[in-house]
Amino acid sequence: MTMTDNPPAVADGFVVRRSIDIAAGIDRVWAAVTQPDLIAQWFGDRCRLDSLEVGAGGAFGWDDAGDFPFRIEEFDPPRAIAYRWSNAVAGALDPLQVVDAHSTLFRFTLEERPGGTRLTVVETGFESHERPDAVVEDHRQGWTSELDELVALVEGAA
Score class of each variant (00 low, 15 high):
14 F>P: 05
14 F>A: 07
15 V>K: 01
15 V>A: 03
15 V>C: 01
15 V>R: 00
15 V>Q: 01
16 V>Y: 00
17 R>E: 05
17 R>L: 02
18 R>Q: 02
18 R>Y: 00
18 R>D: 03
19 S>F: 02
19 S>P: 05
19 S>N: 04
19 S>E: 05
20 I>S: 01
20 I>F: 00
21 D>W: 05
21 D>G: 07
21 D>H: 09
22 I>W: 04
22 I>L: 05
22 I>M: 03
24 A>P: 05
25 G>R: 12
25 G>H: 14
26 I>Y: 10
26 I>H: 15
27 D>E: 05
27 D>I: 01
28 R>A: 11
28 R>Q: 10
28 R>M: 14
28 R>K: 14
29 V>G: 06
30 W>E: 04
30 W>L: 04
30 W>A: 02
31 A>C: 13
31 A>I: 10
32 A>L: 09
32 A>W: 10
32 A>S: 12
32 A>I: 09
34 T>G: 09
34 T>M: 09
34 T>K: 11
34 T>Y: 13
35 Q>W: 15
36 P>H: 08
36 P>N: 07
37 D>P: 05
37 D>N: 10
38 L>P: 07
38 L>C: 08
39 I>D: 15
39 I>Y: 13
39 I>C: 15
39 I>P: 12
39 I>R: 14
41 Q>G: 13
42 W>M: 11
43 F>K: 00
43 F>D: 02
43 F>H: 03
45 D>W: 02
46 R>K: 15
47 C>I: 03
47 C>A: 05
48 R>A: 01
48 R>H: 01
50 D>T: 05
51 S>T: 06
52 L>S: 12
52 L>T: 13
52 L>G: 13
52 L>D: 14
53 E>W: 15
54 V>T: 13
55 G>S: 08
55 G>F: 07
57 G>D: 10
57 G>N: 14
57 G>Q: 12
58 G>R: 00
59 A>P: 02
59 A>T: 01
60 F>H: 14
61 G>S: 07
62 W>L: 07
62 W>C: 10
62 W>N: 06
62 W>T: 08
63 D>P: 00
64 D>N: 10
64 D>G: 08
65 A>S: 06
65 A>H: 04
66 G>T: 04
66 G>M: 03
66 G>W: 00
67 D>N: 10
67 D>L: 10
67 D>F: 11
68 F>N: 14
68 F>C: 15
69 P>C: 08
70 F>C: 09
70 F>Y: 11
71 R>P: 05
72 I>N: 00
72 I>L: 03
73 E>Y: 01
73 E>P: 00
74 E>N: 09
74 E>M: 06
75 F>Q: 15
76 D>T: 13
76 D>L: 14
76 D>F: 15
77 P>Q: 14
77 P>I: 15
77 P>W: 13
78 P>A: 03
78 P>S: 01
80 A>C: 05
81 I>Y: 06
81 I>S: 08
82 A>S: 06
83 Y>P: 07
84 R>E: 14
85 W>P: 08
85 W>C: 09
86 S>D: 12
86 S>G: 15
87 N>F: 05
87 N>Q: 06
88 A>I: 12
88 A>Y: 13
88 A>M: 14
88 A>F: 13
89 V>M: 13
89 V>T: 12
90 A>I: 06
91 G>K: 12
91 G>T: 13
91 G>R: 09
91 G>E: 10
92 A>Y: 07
92 A>N: 10
92 A>M: 09
92 A>F: 08
